[in-house]
Amino acid sequence: MTLLVYAENREGKFKKATFELLSYAEELAKSINADVIALSVNEISPDELNKLGHYGAKKVVSVTDEKFALLDNKLYTSMIANLVEKENAEIIIFPDNLTGRALAPRLSAKLKAGLVSGVVSAPSSYDPFVIKKKVFTGKAFADVKVSSAIKVLTLSQNSFGIKDPSGDTPQIEDFKAEAVSEKSNIKLLSVDKITGKLLLTDAEIVVSGGRGMRGPENWNMIEELADVLGAATACTRPVSDEGWRPHDEHVGQTGKIIAPVLYIACGISGAIQHIGGISSSKVIVAINKDPDAPIFEVADYGVLGDFKNVLPELTKAIKEIKGS
């Protein structure tokens, strides 16, 4: 019996989330006496593939066929289903991000395997299989019982942590997926890649602004702080609705749900819809001039003051620490 992990890469390198997935899978594998297999799609250097072993994969299956160059949900699902059958996989784990959300549901239906998305911890029991996930956009958790033999999970980021890379070099195997012969229904016209920039959903530190920032012209202060921290930037829904910031920065119930280690909220009052998107952050720092702002109810640390005074001070002080 095996556990299959979807090892996602970005620009030829595996993402941190992938290593977290493997660390998580290895923990599960120990409990049920199984092996972890990682699936890597598209051309990746052997060095990178070896890293998957360091984080827990016994075997790495590499798919480099041209027909999988473009993410096609249906084709990918067929390929993964073939692999599940071949490797006798019982638990398939995806990251809870756009890729995982595209593939996991299809695979679940294809295999008639119960899906739990947004998993936040290891199973509390294996027979029956019970596992915790986020529900109501982060406002609550549910223990979910899965009754099918095969299970599909998507794991929330930063919910488990990454182990030390102590594992062995994995066995690397090519997988041709010849059985997948259909044609894709989509044709790629152009790509707008975010290069060099830290992705919001990958970031360990996020600096975010709300309407209290008063206008897009003040965002340089957010960006400067994010810069010294190596953080990604985010915003609330009104801010993206106003067009001050792009929609892909919107964090909240209907935007992105994130779980960074540190979330710094500037000029954000803390509407319940926004809190839903950030409540899984490990530490929340709020900067607001209104002492009654609800954001302080969920924040670990707060600065009562005007962002115009606080942000430059904060940036300066952090620069000093980083410099020393």
Binding site: S108, K112, G114, L115, V130, A140, V144, K145
Partner: peptide, 9 residues
């Protein structure tokens, strides 16, 4: 295939 058995806040 799944069932939510208990919730927590």
């Amino acid at each position: 295939l799944t069932e939510n058995i208990v919730y927590e806040l």
